Deep mutational scan, measured.
Amino acid sequence: NQESVVAAVLIPINTALTVGMMTTRVVSPTGAPAEDIPRLISMQVNQVVPMGTTLMPDMVKGYAP
C-alpha cells in the first residue's frame, strides 16, 4: 500500500509547506504520494488543511503529481 502525505498540524490557507507540517499514512482515497514530500516543501496550500487531513493534489498551488 502506498503512503500518502497527511497534515501533521493545522495548516492555514496560503501557508508554505515545511517538512514538519507533513507526515505519511496509508489512507483511502490516496492523496499526494509520500515520495513527493521534497517537491511539496515551500509550496503553498490554497485552503485550510486540518490536522490529520490527507493532502490532495488540488490543495497545493502549482502541484501536479
Rank of each mutant, 00 (worst) to 15 (best):
M43K: 14
E35I: 13
S28Q: 13
T30K: 15
Q47S: 04
P57G: 03
T23A: 10
V6L: 07
K61V: 15
K61A: 12
P29G: 04
P57I: 08
A16H: 14
A32Y: 15
M21C: 08
T18H: 05
S42V: 07
P38T: 09
V5L: 02
A16L: 13
D36V: 01
L40R: 02
T15E: 05
R25Q: 09
G20Y: 12
P12W: 09
V49G: 04
Q44F: 10
K61Y: 13
D36A: 05
P12Q: 10
G62T: 01
S42I: 08
V5T: 00
Q2A: 13
M51G: 05
R39T: 10
M43F: 06
V19S: 13
V9D: 01
Q44V: 14
Q47R: 12
S42D: 13
V48Y: 10
I11D: 00
E3W: 11
D58P: 04
P38I: 09
Q44I: 15
A7N: 00
V27S: 03
R25I: 08
Y63K: 01
T54C: 05
T30W: 12
L55M: 04
N14R: 00
N1V: 14
A32K: 03
V60G: 03
V48M: 15
D36S: 05
P33M: 05
P38M: 10
R25S: 09
A8D: 01
M59S: 04
P57T: 05
I41H: 00
A32G: 05
V48D: 15
V49H: 00
T30E: 13
T15F: 08
P50N: 08
V6G: 00
V49A: 03
T18G: 06
M51F: 05
I41L: 10
M56W: 03
E35W: 14
R25C: 10
N14E: 05
M22N: 08
M43P: 01
T24L: 09
S28N: 13
S28P: 03
I11K: 00
P57N: 04
L10A: 06
N1T: 13
Q2N: 14
V60L: 07
G20E: 15
V26L: 14
S28I: 13
R39D: 06
V9N: 01
D36M: 08
L10C: 12
P57Y: 10
